[in-house]
Every structure is written in C-alpha cells, then in structure tokens.
Design a protein around this nucleic acid. Structure first.
Length: 243
DNA sequence: GCGACAG
DNA sequence: ATCTTGTCGC
C-alpha cells in the first residue's frame, strides 16, 4: 500500500514535539469506525543492541489477518537503523520509519491497523497509533501491554474475559469516578484471570469498537493474534538480519 | 528538585 | 525493547 510522509523527519526532541503539535489536530476521534473489518493488520518492531539509542538495527513487521478465520493473509517486513532514541512520549519517531517501510510492502489495504503501543493514552494525546493513523489515513488503535497515561480503578475491572475499565487521566488522584479527568483508553481483560491489555483509539474509530475488535482477535491468548504474529515475525527477521 | 516513563 | 534460570501448569 502507499504511505506518504509529507514532511522532514524530526532530528531531535524539539522538532518531534513540534511535529506532534502540528499533526495532533489531524487525528480524527470520531467513530464508530469499521464495524466488521475483514482485514486487520498487526504491527511490531524488534530491536538488536540495547534497544534505546541511535544506530540500533531494527526489524519491523506487519501481518494482515482475516478476521473471519484469524488466518494470515499477508506479511511484510523491513529492516532499518534507528535514527531517534527511545524517549517516552516520542516513541513513534523511533518506530514509524521502519513500520511505514514495511507497510509499503503490502499489496492489500487493511481495514484496521493495530499498533503495539498507545494511541490517545499519551501525554499529548498523540501516541504511535494516532500518528500512524494520520500518516496512512486508515483506522488505527493501540494495544499496549502496560499503562502509560491514564489509570483505571482496580476494583472496577472484573476477572472475566471481556471485562473492562476506563483509563482516566487527570482529575482526582488519577483513576476517577466522579472527579472529572479524561477517559483516554480502556483496560481490557482478553483472558479470564490474566493481566489486561490497554486499548486506546488512534484514528477513525471509537473506543468501544476498538475494544470489540481486539477482544475478537484474542480468543485464546492475552494479546490479539495480529500482535502475536507481528511480534514473532519481527524477531525472526531480526535474527536473520543480525545474529 | 524528584520520580515516572509505551516499546 | 533485550538479557536469562527456574518453575508451574495444560
């Protein structure tokens, strides 16, 4: 598929922050988004070296899954060298170049992109998933393994598969009932008795819809099949490219 | 000033 | 993210 990056890539933190401010208004929070996406793509990046600095070899992978069968429809990968360090809140500038290159190798256009990281649950409401949505013009959502911005009330999250609790940022001590605050995502239990994943919207989809798709893609494991497949593929490619 | 901090 | 031993459980 075609993906344009119509601007110079940030060279430092200040430029990255400025770009986020410029692109943030372009992220569309309106839903509902795709009600029954046929093709959902999972994206992930594997690192060699310490994984935090510049000059590290990385491998990006995109795996498109057919939601009707959960079977793999297509896979695409790309290797690159990092040009931006790992900085919480600026994660996209580290991973996007390789991910965009991998997406360009796709012959089909996914109906939804699921990122390994956050979308709206970000300090400036513009995490990787939002950024990738703006660049591709496709619906996107973030599925993160750990919380970033926003907390949920522990007691509000049930133990069963499908149980969920809002991730609230701001307001009273951080996880609020009536003290205001902003809902930036949702802690979603994809497997009974297992630690939840953190879902947030990226672009052109609403939170309930995003959670429904993530849950459907995770019938057996904690992480959605898309993410699992992309994670495995990126590691395989990195291993083949490095050692 | 200090701690926290997606992958 | 990546580096790793052992351990519990299906």
């Amino acid at each position: 598929m075609r993906v344009d990056v119509p601007h110079a890539w940030p060279a430092d933190e200040a430029e990255a922050l400025a770009l986020q401010a410029r692109l943030r208004p372009l992220a569309d929070d309106r839903g509902p988004g795709p009600a029954a996406p046929r093709l959902v793509a999972g994206l992930d990046v594997a690192y060699a070296g310490d994984g935090r600095g510049v000059g590290d070899l990385v491998a990006a992978a995109v795996v498109v899954v057919d939601t009707a069968t959960l079977g793999v429809v297509e896979r695409a990968t790309a290797t690159a060298t990092t040009t931006f360090p790992y900085i919480p809140g600026l994660f996209a500038f580290r991973e996007l170049p390789a991910l965009v290159e991998a997406l360009r190798g796709l012959t089909v256009t996914p109906d939804l992109l699921l990122c390994d990281g956050h979308g709206r649950s970000h300090p400036r409401r513009f995490g990787l998933a939002c950024h990738l949505g703006v660049l591709t013009g496709l619906p996107t959502a973030g599925v993160a393994k750990t919380p970033f911005v926003g907390r949920h009330v522990p007691a509000a999250l049930g133990p069963d598969r499908g149980d969920h609790a809002d991730l609230v940022d701001g307001g009273d001590g951080g996880a609020g009932g009536a003290g205001g605050g902003e809902v930036v995502g949702r802690a979603l239990r994809t497997q009974a008795g297992v630690k939840p994943v953190h879902v947030s919207t990226g672009h052109l989809i609403d939170l309930p819809t995003a959670c429904a798709h993530v849950l459907a893609l995770a019938p057996r494991y904690r992480l959605p099949e898309t993410t699992r497949q992309a994670d495995r593929l990126s590691r395989d490619v990195l291993r083949a490219a490095a050692g």
